[in-house]
Amino acid sequence: MTPDDLPVPYALAPILDDLTAEQRRAAMALGHVLVLAGAGTGKTKTLTAGVATRIELYGMVPGQILCVTFTNKAAQEMRKRIAGVLGPHSVPTWLGTFHALASRQLRAEPEVAHLRSGFDIRDADDSLGIVRRLIKAIPKEELPVPQEGAPGDAKQIKKMAERISRLKEDLVTPEAARAHVESMIRKRQAANRFVDHESWRFVVGLYGRYQAILREQNAADFGDLLMWPTLAMLYDPAYHRRWTGRFTAVMADEFQDVNRAQYLWLTLLSKKSGELFCVGDDSQSIL
């Protein structure tokens, strides 16, 4: 039986009638579903309909559906739409941004990130401030010479913070950073591509000191929220079973923009159910 053959519950009519025939078929399809469409074509509406369909048509428990968006505004609009059609008790409790949902997962078992219960979360400005203090404490003659600007200036501090964030997005821990960076340098040099190796090698040591400060403060930055749970699911089978067993479906908006950590987080959480529904626009990809 295909989605077109299934009788549509009356409660779903308001949310499905707003879609095209192709969007309705996608929203009602099960398994691995990837919806690619251009800007302004109703991708988020299709995702919302997919969530509602899984609850009302397929009987999935709202608390066992994970639905991730990139903005709080999009999450709130989805909650409002689902509540308006199915009622407030049918809104998935695991609906929110990557950071919000990953922080909830990490708070349940903070030890995977070497943290204690009740840890604080540092935002991007906080992270930049830590990097700034670390760099300002180093004599300028010991800093790498940047391509532009001066050692220790605001531009270099920002770049160093961005590179630490990038390492976390690539699931590289401080302990693994040196080998990762040296491998990257060798590959780029072999391909005759430019790489500011002095700066990257400096980041390795900076990353370790930066992470040590976070741990001393019992704090996590935005990168930690996804990196540590994802690594735990990759390398700890028991942990992975606990988390992938929680969800009967995993849904994601703006899939074209996910980084490595986000992609693996989604696929690992959907491993047991085999239900991964994603919408995106490949022409807008930032990768």
Rank of each mutant, 00 (worst) to 15 (best):
M1L: 11
P7C: 01
V8K: 00
V8M: 02
D17E: 15
D18V: 10
Q23F: 08
R25M: 04
A27E: 05
A27P: 03
G40I: 12
G42S: 06
T46W: 00
L47I: 14
E56K: 08
G59M: 07
V61F: 11
V61S: 15
P62Y: 09
Q64K: 15
L66Q: 05
F70P: 01
N72H: 14
K73W: 05
R81E: 06
I82P: 00
L86W: 01
P88C: 08
P92N: 06
T93Q: 10
T93E: 13
W94Q: 14
H99R: 07
S103I: 00
E111G: 12
A113C: 03
H114A: 12
L115S: 05
G118H: 02
G118E: 02
D120Q: 10
D125M: 13
V131Y: 01
R133N: 14
R133C: 11
L134Q: 08
L134P: 02
L134A: 06
K136F: 09
K136A: 14
E148A: 09
E148S: 11
D153R: 06
A154F: 12
Q156M: 15
M160L: 15
R163G: 01
I164F: 09
R166Q: 13
L171M: 13
T173G: 10
A179C: 05
I185L: 07
A190K: 13
D196W: 10
W200P: 04
V204G: 00
G205M: 10
G205C: 08
R209W: 08
Q211C: 08
E216A: 13
A219C: 14
L225W: 05
M227S: 03
W228A: 04
D236L: 10
H240C: 10
R241M: 12
W243G: 02
W243R: 02
W243S: 05
T244H: 13
R246T: 04
R246K: 15
T248F: 02
V258Q: 05
R260A: 14
Y263K: 13
W265H: 15
S270W: 03
C278P: 10
G280S: 10
G280R: 05
D281E: 13
D282S: 09
I286L: 11
